[in-house]
């Protein structure tokens, strides 16, 4: 559990930092890198990415949206044939979560290639 929380925190930090360098998909690099640096089970890695990026995008979108009184998000929602700006916040969060989850799992699979088989007594294998 602690490892999962560490992974989650690192996903958030690296996703955020990656945006200083990369285009919008920087968060995917960040999430993937995080699950390589902190190894964990596939399922955990997926959810670390899923919750990390999804949560990051949710919080950012939510805060920006509140400050803007949903002015732009409502207009954009209507473009997408939706009705409320909050739906755009949720779409943002879900999309971020999927991207983060996929990236987290990809990072994990990458790390797995360099692991010994299950029988190995690696202390890092939980």
């Amino acid at each position: 559990m602690i490892r999962f929380i560490l992974q989650l925190i690192l996903v958030v930090i690296l996703s955020y930092v990656s945006q200083w360098i990369f285009p919008w998909w920087g968060v995917m690099v960040g999430a993937g890198l995080a699950t390589i640096l902190i190894y964990n089970k596939g399922v955990s890695s997926f959810f670390a990415g899923f919750l990390g990026v999804g949560g990051l995008w949710f919080v950012m979108a939510y805060l920006i949206n509140s400050a803007n009184d949903s002015v732009l998000s409502t207009r954009v929602a209507e473009l997408f044939k939706l009705s409320s700006g909050m739906q755009m916040v949720l779409i943002t969060a879900v999309l971020g979560a999927i991207l983060g989850g996929l990236s987290g799992l990809t990072g994990n699979y990458f790390a797995e290639m360099f692991k010994k088989t299950k029988k190995s007594n690696s202390p890092y294998h939980s």
């Binding site: 945006q19 285009p23 919008w24 998909w25 920087g26 968060v27 990051l56 995008w57 950012m60 979108a61 920006i64 949206n65 400050a67 803007n68 002015v71 732009l72 998000s73 954009v76 755009m88 779409i91 943002t92 999309l95 971020g96 991207l99």
Partner: peptide, 28 residues
Amino acid sequence: LSIKIDPVPPLGNFVSPFTGFWQNAKQA
């Protein structure tokens, strides 16, 4: 998510709070 499939914008960039339309809301 990077390409524009008319009429949907390149969605990844568009909804990213770091680079997308949220930044325009922030600017305002």
